[in-house]
Amino acid sequence: MMTRIDARDRLIVALDVPSAAEADALVARMGDQVRFVKVGLELYTVAGPDIVRKLVDRGKRVFLDLKFLDIEETVRRATARVAAMGATFLTVHANRKALMAAVQGRGSSDLKLLAVTVLTNFDGEDLREMGIQRSVQDLVTARALLAAEVGCDGVVASGEEPQAIRAKVGPNLVIVTPGVRPAGKGTDDHARVTTPTQTIAAGADYLVIGRPIRDAQDPPAATTAILEEMQAAFDRRGR
């Protein structure tokens, strides 16, 4: 019998705030509702490794979204430092050399590596400006195949792509989807946006949600509503 997915294990709340104090306050306010949090460039720039260790010590799982892309030695050594902090997920741009270096750098740790396929604020026109003639979906699936080939655990992709990724790569690659917005909440600066229900139905495993929670009048109430929608969608999907 298949174990029921608990939505609280699959919601990643983005702590996109400008200080450690604000991150602490948001985490404290949401309490046990939120088990998994994202630390991105803004918070890491001001609070550094200490915020990651503090969150881990509080029993939170941490998705460190730093999108590494550099020469192999730098990526390898930096990934080893992230593994030592106790983070659960780390993002690396889907470049073969960078991904392979990150796989080496994490060693035998439990750190899961996620390849960034195509940023959720990009569309086909953005790719053409970069000299890439493929469609967004073709590029995402090609990079997901690369991630699986070199030993990454998963990918970051918009809610429009999980179905295509599953068709190409199979069921075992973890798919983490940012740019998720409850219906009626707008798109902010994401070009490819889906609701929690759509994203989970398409095959995503984890949803990253920031502004709809952070900017809500009542973040715990907003989180409860999102978790209820997610739970219903996971129960319908049955995996």
Rank of each mutant, 00 (worst) to 15 (best):
M1K: 07
T3F: 06
I5V: 15
D6L: 10
R8G: 02
R10W: 04
A14G: 14
L15K: 12
A21Q: 15
A25W: 01
L26M: 14
A28K: 11
R29F: 00
R29H: 07
M30R: 00
D32F: 00
V34T: 08
V37K: 00
K38V: 03
K38G: 01
L41I: 10
L43C: 04
L43T: 07
Y44L: 05
T45H: 08
A47T: 03
A47Y: 03
P49D: 12
I51Q: 14
I51Y: 00
V52C: 11
L55P: 01
D57L: 07
G59C: 05
K60V: 02
R61I: 01
R61V: 00
F63N: 01
F63H: 03
L66A: 00
K67N: 08
E73W: 03
R76A: 05
A78S: 13
T79R: 02
T88S: 14
F89E: 12
T91D: 09
R96V: 09
R96W: 02
R96S: 06
G107V: 12
L111H: 02
L113C: 01
A115K: 01
T117L: 03
V118P: 03
L119V: 14
N121L: 07
N121F: 14
D123E: 10
D126I: 02
L127Q: 10
M130A: 15
G131H: 03
I132R: 11
R134S: 15
V136T: 13
V136P: 09
L139M: 15
L139A: 12
A142K: 06
L145H: 12
L145A: 15
L145R: 15
L146N: 05
A148G: 09
A148M: 09
E149K: 13
V150Y: 10
G151S: 12
C152R: 07
C152D: 08
V155R: 11
S158F: 07
E160H: 15
P162F: 09
A164M: 09
R166G: 11
P171Y: 08
V176P: 07
P178E: 10
R181F: 07
R181D: 04
G184E: 04
D188C: 05
H190K: 05
H190G: 04
H190F: 12
H190W: 06
A191V: 01
T194L: 12
T194K: 15
T195M: 03
P196R: 05
P196L: 08
T197V: 14
T197D: 13
I200T: 10
A204I: 04
L207D: 12
I209E: 01
R211P: 03
P219L: 04
A221T: 10
A222N: 07
T223G: 04
E228F: 00
M230G: 10
Q231W: 01
D235E: 15
